[in-house]
């Protein structure tokens, strides 16, 4: 199911975790790793000058610069590139989220893997609402895997997947992805619904009733199609906390969630987005799925 993995990297250490996961998957599943680097963000009208994504400095992209960037990337990921059978470096200029989406579409990628820097307002953010991650997660046709920290990328293959559902339409796609991954890679799967009781006063009986209802709903909504290594949990609390707790308890090495926030205003989206909170806190990669095409 993973034939082409698109690794979006700036080449900076914050993306090393993502690179480790991407290359490891490439090695294990014989996938092609496409290393995408958006060299610069055009900001000076129609001029040839771009802002380097890492330094923010103004550079002009020519063959020489291109060659230098390619060389840098090759050096940075030297061992990893050698470890996989197929890999390719794609260099481009533009706005990162847009170019990631473009490359994923052009190459028909099965999975996008990217790092998640903690959202500083880097050069390219100016004037565009939403972080690169939010924009990619929202629009990508394929699942998007985010590796926030290098420690979150500890990788020895998949053993345990936590799928967190909010019963949205997008969650159906996320479930399909989680199940297919679990089946194909022969892992355990935990289906979790976090009953959101933050900011609400509910008596214990009502909470318990709701938990029972949610369990029932999971059983009817998600057809396991004979898959056995699966259990269902419903925990109450603040969703992102419960999801992270569950992942820790099960020593999960992958969390799968649905992404369906249309809100791109960073101020509003950041507070509201469970997914982003999970990404920041989880000790393993997080896959977000928002479209049914590639699951």
């Amino acid at each position: 199911m993973f034939k082409k993995i698109l690794l979006a990297t700036s080449g900076a250490p914050s993306t090393f975790g993502a690179a480790r996961v991407a290359f490891d998957m490439g090695k294990r599943y014989g996938a092609e790793v496409l290393v995408l680097n958006v060299m610069g963000v055009p900001t000076k009208a129609y001029s040839q000058v771009v802002n380097d994504v890492r330094t923010g400095e103004e550079v002009e992209v020519d063959e020489e610069y291109r060659a230098w960037v390619e060389e840098e990337l090759k050096n940075t990921f030297e061992k990893q590139i050698e470890s996989v059978e197929y890999s390719r470096i794609i260099l481009t200029t533009g706005l990162p989220h847009r170019e990631i989406l473009r490359a994923a579409r052009e190459n028909d990628a099965d999975l996008i893997v990217m790092g998640a820097s903690s959202g500083d307002s880097s050069v390219y953010r100016k004037g565009y609402p939403g972080s690169t991650l939010q924009r990619v997660a929202k629009a990508a046709r394929c699942p998007v895997m985010t590796v926030h920290r290098e420690t979150a990328s500890y990788w020895g293959g998949f053993g345990n997947i936590v799928f967190a559902t909010d019963f949205s339409k997008q969650a159906e796609s996320a479930f399909k992805f989680a199940l297919a991954t679990a089946r194909e890679l022969d892992t355990d799967l935990t289906i979790l619904h976090a009953l959101d009781i933050s900011g609400k006063v509910l008596d214990q009986n009502e909470i318990e009733d709701r938990i029972i209802a949610a369990r029932e709903r999971i059983r009817t909504a998600y057809d396991l199609d004979g898959f056995k290594n699966c259990d269902v949990e419903v925990w109450e609390g603040v969703p992102y906390v419960e999801i992270v707790k569950m992942a820790r308890e099960r020593s999960a090495d992958l969390i799968v969630m649905a992404h369906h926030s249309h809100e791109l205003d960073p101020e509003k989206a950041r507070i509201g987005s469970t997914m982003e909170q999970v990404i920041l806190r989880a000790g393993c990669p997080v896959v977000s799925v928002s479209k049914p095409d590639k699951v």
């Binding site: 000076k44 009208a45 001029s47 040839q48 000058v49 002009e60």
Partner: peptide
């Protein structure tokens, strides 16, 4: 004016 490097 925006795009001319020499006159930045």
């Amino acid at each position: 004016f925006n795009g001319i490097g020499m006159y930045r």
